[in-house]
Design a protein around this nucleic acid. Structure first.
Lengths: 340, 340
DNA sequence: GCAACGTGCTACATCGATTGTGCACCCGAT
DNA sequence: ATCGGGTGCACAATCGATGTAGCACGTTGC
């Protein structure tokens, strides 16, 4: 692995070094080592010699130089709010796997739900001349889209839709409706309306879920007062506080809008020694094992990421909105890993 | 944001474009836009003019070209097995935050515990001329270290120690001993030895934890047969199977070696309608809420990542092994987010 | 009036890889 | 011996940013 020592102390081996060692020209070496030599009238023997020397010297192509010259980076970027739950973890893994499959180098940046950081991250990615930016769960997808558009970089939204780039999102309405139905079936229809906890009302996804939640109640003729929809934000602390502030009796069961909120809900139930059935729009393996958990809606990450990559090479329609069905998980089911 | 249209259809703005528009030379523009102009006899007025035009044109410095010229990438890489648990999620977030603080661009690659992918990822990072590679929970840290060393890239190990690069790891022995003590205190000393479940015996961390587990039993004069240490691997399915294959009565309490294994354990308990106290060497917010959970050992991610970054600029001692104390969490405690 | 010096820039080579163009050579046919 | 065609390569320009070396101009000192 050591090979001949570099000329200077620590310079990396370049095609020029390999050219000297193999008495070929740098251009031949370049062509040979990037595989394009078969189209370039180069003798097989030369190629083999060069490849062997390159391997012996531990040559690693300078991808920055390569990208610069070819005006093509082969890098794809993803902007993501957090890594702290299974959903985003699965997205990150799927994204990496698909990118690699396509010969793209994935770069993920986590922006902690900070809109300014999101734009800064986008700018940095543009600096690296990424070929696409995927924004997941972005606080302000359109600002990212505009920043990228100004630099000629195409954006796609995952999970949260935007108006200025195509979006792939879960079918939040249908998923929420199914989950509501499941919970209502379990708790018994005469046990009144459920309580919706978590998320932000302005948030597109939360909005769609609330509609599903409402419509399912309506279909069953259960009246649902506005007080039963607590869009208190996502943080678990906020869910806890919202339950503390409740000025009516805890309903027979809960519809919790994310695992983050569910954390707060379960803590509150424990602290107050209460038990209630609940379902959750989001999936987590341990949350699935909690008693009183009626079901979880798991977003179909694999299908969503697939849909994103399918759209990479076709001309984009910025208003397109792809809706991917969710998967309803009943607790106790054997469930594989995060990759759906 | 649009600015004057690019010469060709879609070329990105370069310092040459800005130079033309501002009637300054490319070198002046470069110096101005990268901030080095204050040391370079350039009039403030010129700088302001150039900066304004650059902003109007939405100029974004080509970081590939910059890195190529400066022979310094400002990129730092991390190799990570999975994103599917809180521990690695927290590491990724901390790593990104610290890297940014230092003005480095973080690149994370997740290698699905595949040694070949690990090396491939390292090679790709070398191609991008990363300045350091941090290997977390790598299957074969030394192979990564050798690959990087051959290219003159420094490696550091996080979580799993290696022999060929400095390592920062949790104090697995002390943490395991504390947890064992906690469980034994809860279950009552005369309830016999605990059962250790999960991990690989060859694994350094698992080894250290088993020693702590054993020593605490020994100190209390509790005999611990080898049959009570099930190093069945990490996957939850394997833990489940190991419990199925148990040929003696389930002990009074369990020491589970990771949240992944814990998933299998809890499923098995549910499926067999058994209840046992358990503790877990790893932390997860929902697992912390499971009944019968006596305590969890949470690795101090923040301190570990700090320790890694502290070592970046000092000359490295390849045999160094920094041990960071763990945090013992009692269930029901209010616990913040993953950032410790 | 001329040297000495300071200011504000520009020119050019360079980082490493890529690729279109073109040259030298060899073989066979005329 | 000469030409056409094929093979095997080398040359040089180029991608965008950077930094050194140096040029032109203006001001001051004597």
């Amino acid at each position: 692995m050591t090979g001949t020592n570099r000329n200077a102390e620590n310079r990396r081996t370049t095609i020029y070094d390999i050219a000297q060692l193999s008495s070929a020209s740098p251009s031949a070496v370049s062509a040979i080592l990037n595989g394009s030599w078969k189209k370039r009238r180069i003798a097989k023997a030369t190629a083999e010699r060069v490849i062997e020397i390159a391997e012996r010297e531990g040559y690693a192509r300078n991808l920055q130089a390569s990208a610069l010259r070819r005006e093509r980076s082969n890098v794809i970027g993803m902007i993501m709010p957090k890594y702290d739950n299974r959903y985003f973890g699965a997205i990150a893994e799927q994204f990496e796997a698909r990118a690699r499959q396509r010969g793209l180098f994935p770069i993920i940046t986590c922006t902690e739900r900070d809109p300014d950081l999101e734009v800064e991250a986008a700018r940095e990615m543009i600096g690296y001349r990424v070929e696409h930016v995927i924004a997941t769960g972005a606080t302000d997808p359109d600002r990212i889209a505009r920043t990228c558009a100004a630099a000629g970089v195409r954006t796609l939204n995952l999970d949260l839709p935007g108006r200025e780039a195509p979006s792939v999102i879960s079918d939040n309405y249908a998923g929420a409706r199914e989950l509501t139905a499941l919970i209502l079936d379990r708790v018994g229809t005469d046990n009144g309306p459920l309580l919706f906890v978590g998320g932000r009302a302005a948030d597109h996804n939360t909005g769609a879920r609330i509609r599903g939640f409402r419509d399912e109640h309506a279909e069953r003729g259960i009246e649902l007062p506005d007080s039963h929809v607590l869009t208190c934000g996502y943080a678990s602390e906020k869910a806890r506080k919202a339950l503390d502030d409740l000025d009516f009796e805890l309903p027979g069961a809960l519809f919790v809008n994310s695992t983050i909120s569910l954390e707060g809900v379960v803590r509150w139930l424990r602290a107050n020694k209460r038990r209630t059935l609940f379902g959750c729009f989001d999936w987590d393996p341990f949350a699935a094992l909690l008693e009183d958990n009626v079901g979880m809606v798991r977003q179909d990450v694999s299908a969503m990421v697939s849909a994103i990559f399918d759209r990479l090479d076709t001309p984009l329609d910025d208003r397109e909105e792809v809706r991917v069905p969710c998967i309803l998980c009943h607790p106790g089911e054997t469930d594989g890993d995060g990759a759906s």
